[in-house]
């Protein structure tokens, strides 16, 4: 690693601190309890698309595998089950096999918060208020420019698209094609996507990234993309239409900044998804970690009706510091 001979990015880092302060202020004002959490855990939720960091605790003959948490969810949901109420975590999360790029760092900062008694669309209003608060508090003359027209970004409303509307408008995919796996894969093939060994979920992500995302959050307002297909539900509750999940993501300047979903509190469904994900991890030869069975037990005990939101904190700061990469926010990095 190189030595540091000059302090770089100080102005951006100061904006990072201002955004951090604004977030804490917002959370305190709205009665969210700040919680600090372990980042080392002996077991994790199996997720087939997130690789993890593995380490080991040693004490004489005792050896125990520990994993850096890719998200604070396993701890926050336990606390919700125990009755902590509205709460948030702003701290580190770790994801392996993700090279440092403008938008990724294997060690990053996550803002995750839960509010009881509201669904994902009500959470959208809460997130908008948070963005407004940050925008009012951060003092930076060059901040938050929109890509198109370079006007200042406004946070007084969302630009909203359901996934169905967005795919129709930006990718020319009709509703009946979007939700029919066979038709969707055929459409993807016609567009030139390589469909060999590639299923619906991957092609959906590829088409979203290539054709839809660049058009989101570029008109001067943040864009809310809601009702993702049920195949992308992850830990979200499903909608009554049988096709979509109560999950959304939001974008600013073509970049996904965060997402939220009405939390799945059906432990049987959760258990099913766990088994499926664990199987996929094995197939993909990913690190064979201990599965957090206590997490399912906690859900069985009873997770209150709530919505959780996760925001990539560095990406959020990038918006308000008008920077193009996570690295520009750091005083020191291992890059």
């Amino acid at each position: 690693m190189k030595i540091v001979t000059q302090i770089k990015n100080l102005e951006n880092y100061k904006i990072y601190l201002q955004v951090e302060k604004a977030v804490h202020g917002f959370m305190e004002k709205n009665n969210y309890l700040k919680v600090d959490l372990p980042v080392l855990s002996p077991a994790l939720i199996p997720e087939s698309y997130l690789e993890i960091f593995e380490t080991e605790f040693n004490y004489f003959d005792k050896k125990e595998k520990l994993y850096l948490t890719p998200s604070p969810e396993i701890f926050l949901k336990r606390l919700l089950v125990a009755g902590v109420g509205n709460c948030y975590y702003l701290g580190r999360a770790y994801r392996n096999s993700e090279p440092n790029s403008d938008w990724h760092s294997s060690e990053f900062t996550m803002l995750e918060f839960y509010k009881l008694g509201i669904n994902y669309l009500e959470m959208a209003e809460e997130v908008l208020k948070l963005l407004q608060e940050i925008s009012n508090k951060v003092k930076n003359p060059s901040f938050a420019k929109a890509t198109e027209g370079k006007q200042k970004l406004k946070f007084d409303r969302w630009e909203k698209y359901s996934v169905t509307e967005a795919f129709e408008k930006f990718a020319g995919i009709k509703k009946e094609e979007l939700f029919n796996e066979k038709l969707f894969i055929k459409k993807a093939k016609n567009k030139g996507f390589n469909i060999d060994n590639t299923g619906y979920e991957d092609l959906f992500s590829q088409m979203l990234a290539a054709e839809v995302e660049p058009k989101l959050g570029v008109s001067g307002y943040p864009t809310l993309l809601y009702d993702l297909p049920k195949q992308m539900a992850s830990l979200a509750k499903l909608n009554d239409d049988g096709l979509t999940a109560q999950r959304c993501e939001f974008y600013i300047n073509g970049l996904e900044v965060g997402g939220f979903c009405t939390e799945l509190n059906d432990y049987k469904e959760q258990q099913k998804r766990f088994i499926l994900e664990a199987k996929k991890r094995k197939q993909n030869k990913m690190i064979d970690h201990t599965i957090d069975k206590g997490f399912v037990k906690a859900l069985k005990y009873g997770l209150p009706f709530c919505t959780g939101a996760g925001i990539g904190f560095e990406r959020l700061v990038m918006i308000f510091s008008n920077t193009k990469s996570i690295d520009e926010l750091k005083l020191i990095s291992i890059k």
Binding site: Y49, L50, R95, S97, E98, P99, S101, D102, W103, H104, G192, N194, T198, E201, D202, F204, S205, Q206, M207, L208, A209, A210, E211, P214, L228, M232, S234, E256
Partner: peptide
Amino acid sequence: DFYSPGKGAALMKARLKNLISAKNVEYAYK
């Protein structure tokens, strides 16, 4: 640019310039 949406395969978002038509196309590889 490497891009992992966290809910599907990790992607490589690429802008490709066709050297015959000179047009750019956005594509996302796994």
